[in-house]
Design a protein around this nucleic acid. Structure first.
Lengths: 152, 152
DNA sequence: GTGGCGAATGAAAACCGTTTTCATTCTGAA
DNA sequence: TTCAGAATGAAAACGGTTTTCATTCGCCAC
């Protein structure tokens, strides 16, 4: 994901429902029950299939923006030109191990950068405010699928 | 930067000059004397200013692709929708501390992911093949410029 | 040298995710 | 009920990148 220090989290369940836009609520609902990362268009597509009057793509983008702002959703960039989103524990973030074969992803349970933040700060005199980190490779299942077949 | 395991480095100075396209050579020249990251359009612009018959944008893109393939250049993605490039020691890679204020960047002298690769592999049974990692914040100079002014 | 063929090149069009614009509709406070 | 600001949507604009396709280049065989 990508992290940017400044957040303004001060949300409770009730506050959320209060401040969230109609569109944002629908978007959040989709993300709530999706465990894989979703692009704006994925979300838009999902809503088109289940809502009588689904929000437009523009609204989905705007909703995502405010949800990210609120710290309820994180945006992830794999460098393929398509941003993906997923719910997070408010104000938290995490990174992924992304399988290049099946495209599924696993969450890293701790942030490698945060751990090293102080040492970076000390060594480079650089004030860390955000970072992006994603790891690509093969998940356990796909390793099995590849190896026995004989390496190409 | 973004790393993808598979490379086919087997280059010597002479081999390079042999296999490199005319356009690729010009692109490499620009990157050779630029210490900051350059976008395709930056490179194209630079060449337009100094070459009699500069390569077209398309050729710049194609050249960059093959240079990355050869391991002579790395592509870096900051998640802002514009890819940037820079020369690297053949086959190596590095990540950046990018100042959000002045936009300059410093190289990390070691890769945080490679250090942890084995433990990730062991813990998650995930075969690491590549990764992206960039850190954003304030460089030393820009910290000074901000702090004395009083925090907003 | 000359013919010929695949690689390289360039201009323009296509792509595609995202952002803007702008007019319309909704919502909540007065 | 009225009104102003927020939310929404459709369509256009954007911007970096990739494709397409016709042309030119470079090099080997003859």
């Amino acid at each position: 994901m990508s992290v940017q220090g400044s957040h303004g989290h001060s949300h409770t369940k009730s506050q959320q429902s209060l401040r969230l836009t109609k569109g944002a609520k629908k978007v959040l609902e989709v993300l709530e029950r999706t465990d894989e990362l979703s692009s704006a268009q994925d979300i838009h597509g999902a809503l088109r299939n289940e809502e009588e009057s689904p929000p437009g793509l523009t609204t989905v983008y705007r909703s995502l923006e405010s949800l990210v702002q609120l710290g309820l959703v994180q945006a992830v960039d794999f460098g393929d030109g398509e941003r993906r989103y997923e719910m997070v524990k408010p104000g938290e973030h995490h990174h992924h191990l992304v399988c290049e074969k099946c495209r599924n992803s696993v969450h890293l349970d701790q942030c490698l950068v945060q751990q090293l933040e102080e040492s970076i700060q000390a060594k480079y005199k650089f004030e860390v405010r955000g970072h992006i980190l994603e790891i690509f490779g093969l998940c356990e299942e796909c390793q099995k699928a590849v190896a026995p077949a004989g390496k190409k």
